[in-house]
Design a protein around this nucleic acid. Structure first.
Length: 447
RNA sequence: CGGGGCGUGGCGCAGCAUGGCAGCGCGGCGGUUUUGGGAACCGCAGGUCGUUGGUUCAAAUCCAAUCGCCCCGACCA
């Protein structure tokens, strides 16, 4: 993409109402623009990141055997009256009346809709297990939205729902989700810790929240520092194996890790050596639930089991805050100059800066590089504006592309261009004929 | 919803106590000189001072209502 033909409305000054670093940087980098309290437009650069994250979430869900569909944002009130939540959910649910005076609501979550879909089409245990999910905009009329997209009223969430014939199968679904979530965060360069959580208004018996440690997080968390050293053993996970998933979940949940909602100081002190006790702030980026037959019972979602008996299905639900992850990643990865994107979610992999606008050779090299990289399918942002070099460097650092190639008369005298890594600031000179290969090597090495 | 604060060119702000020409910085446009870390100079454009009503010879400024936004708290991916 040529910057002169793109749209990145950056800001030099910090908007006064942005309180936390991710919000400030998203506004300064021209990623979002506020439309109303807690409601944002996603500008081109922000949209690219959002879509990268969305794609990773999809890939990991599909890898775990979960099936995407898409449910509407507007839902009929009737289903919610049936589950009993139309009144329970309270003011946070945005209610709408259409021209025929029918009650609708902008979905804050989708248990009712998915259960309705399920009960209309699934009758037999042979159709189970089944996990359906979608990535769709939600609306929760928060009393006080804040921190940009971190606590918006409108937000993009992946929410999934598993249907199983009995508790054991449902627990496996729960475990499968925990593992797939951990992998999802890992791919975005985030370390998210599963913590035992309250079930809240969703209800149910088991729940874990996934927290990314950050000073600006809104949740207080207590954990055993040993959990920070846990690693995934291999890239391939057999999601169909109950034993395998259970073992991984065990691995990740054997250490003490709880939010303030479930924290028990006595247990904390009994089970964690003092030197490993940590108290910190965290950003919640996902939550999983097993809620047994809480929805299937009132809504009549049942199947025939192998003995021909009608049984209520065991369900669970799971959510990842996709739009919130954009902010969480920035909170976890930035410096004083701007954002430092992990390459898996970066809006572009590399930026080309021509350090001398109007210098014929420089521009010829930039153009050739841009053509070649784009031809190779490498997402490239070419800053071809008639700005001075300093301004272009500042912009590149603000928007945080992992790599920058600088082309200028100084280097071209000896036929060289510069490759700079955003994360470390390390730079190295390469001959113009070698730069593409060098970049490809680095992209591979740091992927 | 309780408490606090703020609405003035695209952005950041001053002006308001004590009513009297609507300003500054950044950004934008044109020009000249520049050109490897957010250039300098000259010129230009851009604002019904959130909205409505009131007081007054005169309102950004005083009064009232209203809308919106932000911060703290209780609630939430």
């Amino acid at each position: 993409m040529r910057m002169t033909r793109y749209f990145i409305p950056t800001l030099r000054e910090i908007p006064s109402d942005a309180q936390i670093v991710s919000h400030r940087l998203m506004l300064r980098a021209g990623m979002i623009k506020q439309a109303a309290a807690g409601i944002y437009s996603w500008m081109p650069l922000g949209l690219r990141v959002l879509q990268k994250i969305e794609r990773i979430v999809h890939e990991e869900q599909i890898r775990a055997g979960h099936i995407p569909l898409l449910m509407p944002t507007l839902q009929p009130a009737g289903l919610w009256r049936e589950s009993g939540r139309y009144d329970d959910y309270g003011e946070e649910m945005l209610r709408i009346t259409d021209r025929h005076q029918r009650d609708l609501l902008y979905g804050p979550t989708n248990e009712e809709l998915i259960t309705d879909i399920f009960r209309g089409h699934v009758r037999s245990y042979r159709d189970l297990p089944l996990t359906l999910y979608h990535i769709q905009w939600k609306f929760r009329d928060e009393i006080r939205p804040r921190y940009g997209i971190m606590r918006g009223r409108e937000f993009l969430m992946k929410d999934g729902y598993n249907f199983d014939v009995d508790k054991e199968a449902a627990i496996h679904s729960y475990n499968r989700h925990m593992v797939s979530y951990l992998r999802t965060y890992q791919r975005m360069g985030l370390q998210a810790i599963p913590m035992r959580a309250d079930t809240g208004p969703i209800g149910g018996k088991y729940s874990h929240e996934f927290l990314v440690l950050a000073d600006t997080g809104e949740s207080e968390v207590f954990f055993d520092s040993a959990i920070l050293d846990l690693q995934f053993e291999g890239r391939d996970i057999d999601y169909d194996s109950r034993g395998n998933c259970a073992r991984l979940v065990d691995h990740w949940t054997s250490h003490y890790a709880r939010t303030d909602e479930t924290h028990d100081q006595d247990v904390f002190e009994e089970t964690v050596p003092e030197s490993r006790r940590r108290r910190s702030k965290g950003i919640e980026v996902g939550q999983i639930f097993y809620f047994s037959t809480k929805y299937s019972e009132p809504m009549g979602a049942s199947v025939s089991n192998a003995n021909g008996e009608l049984v209520n299905v065991h369900m669970g639900s799971h959510g990842i805050g996709v739009s919130r992850l954009v902010g969480a990643i920035i909170e976890a990865s930035h410096d004083e100059r701007g954002i430092v994107w992990p390459s898996s979610v970066a809006p572009f992999q590399v930026g080309i800066v021509s350090a001398a606008t109007g210098h014929a050779e420089t521009e010829a090299v930039c153009n050739a590089l841009y053509q070649e990289l784009t031809g190779l399918g490498i997402e490239t942002l070419y800053d071809d504006r008639t700005e001075r070099a300093g301004a272009k460097f500042a912009t590149m650092e603000l928007i945080g592309l992992p790599w920058r190639i600088t082309v200028g008369p100084r280097g071209l005298k000896t036929g060289q261009v510069e490759l700079v890594r955003r994360k470390s600031g390390d730079s190295k000179q390469y001959a113009t004929g070698e730069i593409v290969a060098a970049l490809c090597y680095q992209l591979e090495a740091h992927n």
